[in-house]
Simulated assay, not measured.
Amino acid sequence: MEQSNVESLFEHIDNLTETVQQYMNETYLDSLTIALETVFYGNPPEEMGDFEQNLPSIPDLSAYDIVDIRKAVQLAILKGMKGATQQQHLMTPETVALFVGYLASKVTSDQENIRVFDPASGTGNLLTVVTEQLDKLGDVVAGEVDPTLIKLAVLNANLQQKEIEFFHQDSLRPFLLDPVDLVVSDLPVGYYPDDIRANDYELRAEEGHSYAHHLFIEQSMNYTKPGGYLILVIPEFLFDSDQSDKLHAYLQEQAHIIGVLQLPESAFKADKNRKSILMLQKKGPDTTGLKQPLLVQVPSFKNTDAMNDILAQMNAWFSDTMKQ
């Protein structure tokens, strides 16, 4: 069988990464950052020294389109993340990212120069997939605390020729950033260890550590313009947890709920990783709540007929409800 462009480029990147891994004795993900840098610049970084002659051939990126490059890099990152125990080292599945992009294009369809922010960008996969689907794009900004993930995100964006400004910082600290039109994020789930920083947030826990996913919702709201939108990939248990009353009250005060979409079980490896998508609009002087938010049980992404049916219903809902 003939190899696809994605498979061919992935093979090149994978061979490079494994060779770097043998030489540098680093993890696959850290070696991947060096391999991607080598692909981007066309030659290996100085730290490779004399080992350069042992490297496999470096692929010519001009032979591949942007989507092929994104998917090949994604496969390499997924390989590096196999068996990763840290929840934040799990990549947003491609199908989920495409769905977030579809929703983003719907809520911003009448806007120009859309400024987008992802406060927890990981390897940048969600952000690059979403921005691919937005026509009238302005500034794109991302925050990420993990040094390996942000290196991968920067290289990922460079290889796809996307202009994204990255902040390497704890994303629950203040950003030097004006509020944006759209926030998209796959929220980190778990406890936030910095209780002093958490005290700055309304959604902090009364005692013990606060939930990072709650604080990220508040931080996302802080950097959204009045009338702007937030499309957040949330843990399915978000509204059932012990601190959810506070979250409900906060959202009622600050935002209009546009929709909740329950993602299919088949999109996630384990039940505990199951996610939904929460769509919010930050309240502003010209905004009003919806009588009927969009509530959807998304079918399996592999069930084409059911997906086409649900997309037709959603398109009709956006036409009828969001344009009133």
Rank of each mutant, 00 (worst) to 15 (best):
P44E: 04
P226G: 08
T123D: 03
F117E: 00
R173G: 13
H248N: 12
S210R: 01
F301C: 07
V184T: 07
K246L: 02
A72H: 02
E265F: 12
L61R: 04
D200H: 08
E52F: 12
T287N: 07
K291E: 15
P179H: 09
L294C: 08
K272N: 12
L295E: 07
R274I: 12
N25L: 14
N5H: 14
L247P: 00
K291C: 10
I234T: 04
P59A: 09
F268Y: 09
V141W: 05
E112I: 11
A270T: 15
K106P: 01
L187T: 01
T19S: 14
L16C: 05
T123W: 03
Y23N: 13
D146Y: 06
A84F: 08
L126P: 04
V39K: 00
R204G: 02
G143T: 09
F99Y: 13
L9E: 04
L152I: 01
I231W: 02
E236P: 00
A306M: 09
A153P: 06
A76H: 02
H213R: 05
G143L: 05
Y23E: 13
M91E: 06
L230G: 03
R204D: 02
L278Q: 02
Q243R: 14
A255S: 09
T288R: 14
N308G: 10
I310Y: 07
Y201P: 00
K79H: 13
I69E: 05
I310D: 01
V189D: 06
H248D: 09
S171E: 07
L176I: 13
P59I: 04
E202T: 09
E18F: 12
R173T: 15
P56R: 08
V183R: 02
N273G: 12
T19V: 10
D60T: 11
L134M: 10
V141F: 10
N5D: 14
L78M: 12
Q313M: 10
A316Q: 15
H248K: 11
S300Q: 09
Y211I: 00
L134V: 10
T123Q: 05
G42A: 05
F10K: 02
V260I: 15
N199K: 14
V73W: 00
T33E: 00
V180H: 06
D50E: 14
D195R: 10
Q292E: 09
Q169V: 10
Y102W: 12
N199W: 09
H256M: 07
I310V: 15
P147L: 13
D320R: 12
D30Q: 13
L203S: 01
D139G: 07
L61D: 00
D194W: 06
S171G: 13
P264E: 10
S57P: 14
H209A: 13
L177E: 05
Y192F: 10
D110H: 15
S31V: 06
V189P: 01
N43Y: 15
A267T: 07
L127N: 03
K71Y: 09
S319H: 15
E218M: 05
Q88L: 11
Q133L: 12
L203R: 02
M48Q: 07
V183G: 01
S31I: 05
P193I: 07
A104P: 02
V129M: 06
F318M: 03
E112T: 11
N156K: 01
D305Q: 15
S8F: 12
